[in-house]
Design a protein around this nucleic acid. Structure first.
Lengths: 155, 155
DNA sequence: CTGCGCTGCTTGACGCATCAACGATGTGGC
DNA sequence: GCCACATCGTTGATGCGTCAAGCAGCGCAG
């Protein structure tokens, strides 16, 4: 490990703010969903993705990719959601290895009930504090970072 | 639960990018530290804070506040770090309820050894992809969000 | 048409965070 | 002084994520 370039003052300040957001924002979202809807943020995300898919179903591998999760993690989560009756598994018709996760009617209700509170929290925590220009900047910069993260992941 | 304002297209796009960053960035940092230095990001953070404190020691409650963690979480972590010989506990001289966490010599070595790799990863994942303008915007926007998160936490 | 490697998924063990309950010490009102 | 209450910290139970191992089903080479 040879000498890295250290962060300059501006970068340090940026990093501290980013770190604070990364640390606290997920915790707040988690808490709100857990408290108001009895589900984790990740469970919400998974069900939201399913609710937007055709037939309200997706192969686990596709779902995992869209949710930025490992297949293992997703499998555990689907098991839990299945126990609560919000999702069921079904074999994929075209590939006997694959499994479809299907959102049940109760699952749809659950997402619909949870969505307003969740969106409200996101708005409150992020967008209410920002100007239009801020939102644009945020989107641009985060997209650049996310892009880099993706590229690195596939190396 | 009254009607919330939904997110407009620009906000949705911003939110998706933010969510991707929040999801993947911590995972990458975690992995790098775990792989290269055998410690978690949070453990690194705690030891880094201690290394900058006078006497290399802090009361657990202060350390918890600076690390944005619960006292319980911090106590567990200090226990683990103690087992590895990187930190020791010591009663606070001025308040018999309080405990000081003290970074040992081995702990200092550990932080010093881990720092370059960690900083390098932060630079690589965030700042290398950004222009100076980006960094400035990121700092401004994240500071605004972090501020809001703090204010909400104290309500 | 068979053997081998790859893909898709599941499972169990382990580590860490959270939550609630608790013991112990300080502090302010009376 | 004494009691109530707040502060500081620890601990154990529970739940989730990760990692490594494993089992089918698929598909290609020969």
């Amino acid at each position: 490990m040879h000498e890295p370039r250290w962060l300059d003052a501006r970068e340090q300040q940026a990093w501290r703010s980013v770190a604070a957001v990364i640390l606290k924002l997920p915790a707040e979202l988690e808490q709100q969903l857990q408290r108001d809807s009895g589900m984790s943020h990740f469970e919400y995300w998974v069900m939201a993705l399913l609710s937007e898919a055709t037939e309200r179903s997706l192969r686990l591998s596709h779902l995992a990719a869209q949710a930025n999760a490992s297949l293992s993690r997703l499998s555990h989560v689907v098991t839990r959601l299945e126990r609560r009756g919000w999702v069921t598994r079904r074999p994929a018709p075209d590939d006997a290895r694959a499994t479809l996760a299907v959102l049940t009617a109760a699952g749809v209700d659950q997402v619909v009930a949870a969505a307003p509170g969740h969106v409200g929290t996101v708005r409150e925590l992020i967008f209410d504090a920002l100007t239009e220009q801020d939102v644009e900047d945020l989107a641009r910069v985060c997209a650049a970072i996310a892009d880099r993260l993706d590229r690195r992941a596939t190396l």
